[in-house]
Nucleic acid binder design. Sequence first.
DNA 1: GTAGCGTGGTATACATAGTAAACATCCGGC
DNA 2: GCCGGATGTTTACTATGTATACCACGCTAC
Lengths: 244, 244
Amino acid sequence: MYTTLLRIIFNMPGGYDSVVKTLNQEAIVLVALDIARQKGLPAVTMRAVAGHFGVTAMALYRHVADREELARLVVDRIGSHIRPAAPQGDAREDDVAGDHTTDHADWDDRARAWARAQRTVLRQYPGTAAWLIENGPAGPQAYRLLENLAAALAGSGLDDARTARGTALIMSWTFSRVAVEDRAGPPRGERADTFVGGLTTIDPERHPVTARIGQEFFTLDDEEIFETGLNWILAGLGADAAAT
Amino acid sequence: MYTTLLRIIFNMPGGYDSVVKTLNQEAIVLVALDIARQKGLPAVTMRAVAGHFGVTAMALYRHVADREELARLVVDRIGSHIRPAAPQGDAREDDVAGDHTTDHADWDDRARAWARAQRTVLRQYPGTAAWLIENGPAGPQAYRLLENLAAALAGSGLDDARTARGTALIMSWTFSRVAVEDRAGPPRGERADTFVGGLTTIDPERHPVTARIGQEFFTLDDEEIFETGLNWILAGLGADAAAT
DNA sequence: GTAGCGTGGTATACATAGTAAACATCCGGC
DNA sequence: GCCGGATGTTTACTATGTATACCACGCTAC
């Protein structure tokens, strides 16, 4: 409203759009992305996004179908930030065609790079990993990333069926680890009844192994857990591929 | 309310409690468990549970602190249904002490049995796996089950740190697979823009590998994906244990 | 120029959640 | 016979998504 007036006041060719954010899908997604980064994906509510524009929540519905669509757009945009670099160390962009020409010997390094890139970006947007597990990856970026991973695994010599299963395994590990890391973040040691937090009070009589390795849960950092799991997964895949 | 009157009407020693459910924590958890099984954990709302007793939602707060506590009680109760049988085939109950006396050679079969038992039960209560990923396992049953798994892995010869990481990996795979299966359930082929549903429309030009293996995502059933992933994980763990 | 129509934002309201606060009721013990 | 704790109710407030009706602007066709 009053756009004409504001255009006169600001006296600029493109109107006031370059100063005050215009309400369109692109801008909405960007604001939502910002909220997701700062407060997590669940904090991306219609009212919160609308508030950043000084409009009502209903205004957003002229540009996105509903919250579900907005979430998908946000997650897809997050996916566009994930650029698994080639493991050789050269900084070239990953282009799908190019990836297929790389040496097949380093398939596991490519898979590792893929998982690390996923984790790095997903960690910046709390709640996204959990969302992906519950809703499933979708959209163009998801396809691009799936292709990257599948291409890497296909280079191992696994057949198609195993390649498909392998992508599921690596994606699962990546998403669920980040989801776990998301919650373990800020309120460290706040809730005593949490799984990890409660490990100090384990009764060694009834739970001898847990009591013994309980310390490990504290000292291990997320990085180590993630990398070790990834190594085991790739070792298992590699052994299977070699045996075929 | 009117308990005296009802006791007179029903004319029974214990009052009407044996006919109409009494409101106490145990009964609340059982009703919540029932709702979780039929409609999933997210459907366990305070009002829904209260409705089954013919009371208001606020009445529940005399017996549970809040929805969070109720959810934890429900999940713990679900955990009590998980009884990973010994892999030898004998039907004895798994008791923690007994588990440790079993032969260490079959550590991977024990881990497999653990994961299968988890999956079988978690599948009966949709949304629980996702809840576990987001909130983390907690409570007595979680400890018992963790001990079971850790004990199995410790039998592989892995050191404590690796055992801890191994439990995280196996739990992650189990939980996230069931979480994925939960959503893939009823609305199969409903949303065309879903990850799996969209795989038919993959452009073979841009996503050659995905297009090729796309069929596999349809034909593979959940059982196969789960078992194969589990095998790879255990193979990776085993190789590492053997190398140490 | 003006009538009308489409685009886009607003106002209002409803449904579903959890839950706080004050009140009511009932029952057992003094 | 009354009192106090335990237990359920009432009311209401919050946050969330979203349906519906409305309205204001500005462009286009006459």
